[in-house]
C-alpha cells in the first residue's frame, strides 16, 4: 500500500518572519532611522537646554563674572570652532559624494571629517591639561565649574561622534553604502551636525560673552 498523502512538512506552514507581514507600510512615512535620530536629538536638545539654562541662571545671579577673554585662550578655541565647522561641511560633502556614487570623494571627505573631529578633541584635551596645570580646576569657582560641565559634556559628545563617524566609515569602505542606501551615513552626519550646532552656541556663551 502506498501512501496516498505525502508526509506533512511543518516547515511549509511555518511563518517565515517572526513579525506579522502586512501588505502596506505600517510605520510613519519617513525612514525609521531618521525618525528615531530626530527623537533622540530632541532629547539632546533638552539635555543641553538644561545645562545652558542652569549656566544662565548661575551667571545672571552672580554679582560678578570674569571676562572669559581674560581666562581662556579665545583665539585657539576660535580656530577649533573653524575646524569643527569644516568637519560638518566635509560630512555633507561626503554624503553628497556617496549619493552620486563617487567613492573616491566620499573616502576623502569623510576621512577628513574624522581627522577634524579628532583634532578638535585633541585641542580640547590640551586646553584642559593647560588649565589644570594652572590650577584652574572645576572647584575654583562658578566660572570654572560651569565651563567644565558644559564643555566636558560637549567634548564627550564629540568623542562619541568621532567614533560613530569612524564606524560608518569602516562599513562604507567595505561597500555597505551606495547611492541606493546611505541612511547610516546620514544618521551619523545628523548627530555630528547637532554636536557642531551645540558648539556654536557654547562657544558664544562660554568664550565670547
Amino acid at each position: 500500500m502506498t501512501d496516498a498523502y505525502p508526509a506533512y512538512d511543518a516547515t511549509v506552514d511555518a511563518p517565515k518572519h517572526h513579525h506579522p507581514v502586512y501588505d502596506y507600510d505600517s510605520g510613519p512615512p519617513v525612514d525609521r532611522g531618521k525618525f528615531a535620530i530626530w527623537v533622540f536629538l530632541g532629547t539632546e536638545i533638552m539635555f543641553f537646554t538644561g545645562l545652558i539654562g542652569t549656566y544662565i541662571v548661575l551667571r545672571a545671579g552672580s554679582p560678578s563674572w570674569p571676562n572669559p577673554a581674560a581666562r581662556l585662550a579665545v583665539d585657539i578655541t576660535a580656530f577649533n570652532t573653524f575646524v569643527l565647522i569644516c568637519s560638518s561641511a566635509t560630512v555633507v560633502a561626503g554624503l553628497f559624494a556617496i549619493q552620486n556614487d563617487d567613492r573616491r570623494k566620499f573616502n576623502l571627505w569623510w576621512g577628513l571629517s574624522i581627522l577634524f573631529g579628532a583634532f578638535f578633541v585633541g585641542v580640547q584635551v590640551y586646553e584642559y591639561l593647560h588649565l589644570f596645570h594652572l590650577d584652574m580646576t572645576p572647584n575654583q569657582d562658578l566660572f570654572w565649574s560651569t565651563f567644565y560641565v558644559m564643555t566636558g559634556f560637549h567634548g564627550a559628545h564629540v568623542v562619541i561622534g568621532v567614533v560613530w563617524l569612524a564606524a560608518v566609515y569602516v562599513a562604507a569602505l567595505r561597500g555597505k553604502y551606495s547611492s541606493k542606501d546611505f541612511v547610516g551615513l546620514e544618521l551619523a552626519g545628523l548627530y555630528w551636525h547637532f554636536v557642531d550646532l551645540v558648539w556654536v552656541l557654547l562657544f558664544t556663551l562660554v568664550y565670547l560673552m
Binding site: L58, R59, G61, S62, P63, S64, W65, R71, L142, F143
Partner: peptide
C-alpha cells in the same frame, strides 16, 4: 548665587 566671588578678580 555666586556670592563667594570677588568682583575684582573673580
Amino acid at each position: 548665587i555666586g556670592r563667594q566671588l570677588d568682583p575684582n578678580d573673580g
